[in-house]
């Protein structure tokens, strides 16, 4: 079976700094896979490469067999990859429901003229976007905030909203960049349960960045570890926990800290 995501010898250099070095991996459809590594090890850069924010200096990235390296971010989203950000990036001037249906705009059929004239075709699409957006909020327990400003939501709910917004684009692959960052251990735990719920209800593949190993141990059957932009280990939680290189990388990192 072709993997859903395939990265082949991907390298990203920023001037003299190699943020990602010769990185390869595969994700199968339906998987929940974690990407962990110490501070500044290149995790976010890998997501930025997959979503087209950066173009690989070398190597290729495939989504279900299509080469997506070098494509524009919005095109890649249209092909089925959605993401959240390490630092929450909600649209402050849009309410919660609007934040979500922005993610449906790319599937809009009506052109701008029929939108301005509110032709029946456009009205139907707009109604449908609102309806499915609302259903999405309901299924994620966010419906009561629908008409609130996103910044008025509690922190944990803002994180969920970012996930809801990404789901609105109908992705096949969902990339979550440290979704539990800044949360208490119990909130982080709850969010991980939430992510498992999302994985099952939306029949997705999820690639999840986490800084702390502990958080993903319970829910991710497979974990990839990088350090200094390089792949250093891969396996199930137990294997990772006992891997010498991983221990060294994490201890080394905390030595510097």
């Amino acid at each position: 079976m072709t993997p859903l995501l395939k990265m082949v010898n991907v390298t990203k250099r920023f001037g003299g700094l190699t943020a990602v070095n010769n990185f390869s991996t595969e994700l199968q459809a339906g998987e929940l896979c974690a990407l962990i590594g110490p501070n500044g090890s290149g995790k976010t850069t890998i997501f930025n490469l997959i979503t087209g924010i950066y173009v690989p200096s070398e190597g290729h990235i495939y989504l279900g067999g299509d080469d997506i390296s070098g494509k524009r971010p919005d095109v890649i989203t249209g092909m089925g990859i959605a993401r959240t950000f390490q630092n929450i990036r909600l649209f402050k001037g849009l309410n919660v429901l609007e934040n979500v249906i922005v993610g449906k705009h790319l599937r809009l059929q009506s052109n701008v003229a029929s939108a301005v004239m509110r032709l029946p075709g456009y009205d139907r699409e707009e109604k449908e976007m609102r309806q499915t957006g609302m259903e999405l909020l309901e299924s994620l327990g966010l419906a009561r905030f629908a008409y609130d400003e996103p910044t008025s939501l509690p922190y944990g709910q803002q994180r969920k909203l970012e996930i809801a917004r990404a789901l609105a684009t109908n992705p096949r692959l969902l990339l979550l960049d440290e979704p539990a960052a800044g949360m208490s251990p119990s909130d982080a735990e709850e969010l991980m349960t939430f992510i498992q719920h999302v994985l099952k209800t939306f029949e997705l593949t999820i690639f999840l960045i986490e800084h702390q190993m502990r958080v993903v141990m319970g829910i991710c059957p497979r974990i990839i570890v990088i350090d200094h932009g390089e792949w250093i280990a891969e396996g199930n939680p137990e294997q990772i926990q006992n891997n010498d290189r991983v221990i060294e990388a994490y201890l080394g990192a905390s030595d510097h800290a």
Binding site: P73, T77, A82, R89, F91, L94, G103, H105, L106
Partner: peptide, 13 residues
């Protein structure tokens, strides 16, 4: 207007 990076990631050209 609010966030170009996020908008593009949500499929806005």
């Amino acid at each position: 207007r609010d966030d170009e990076v996020a908008a593009e990631a949500l499929g806005v050209n």
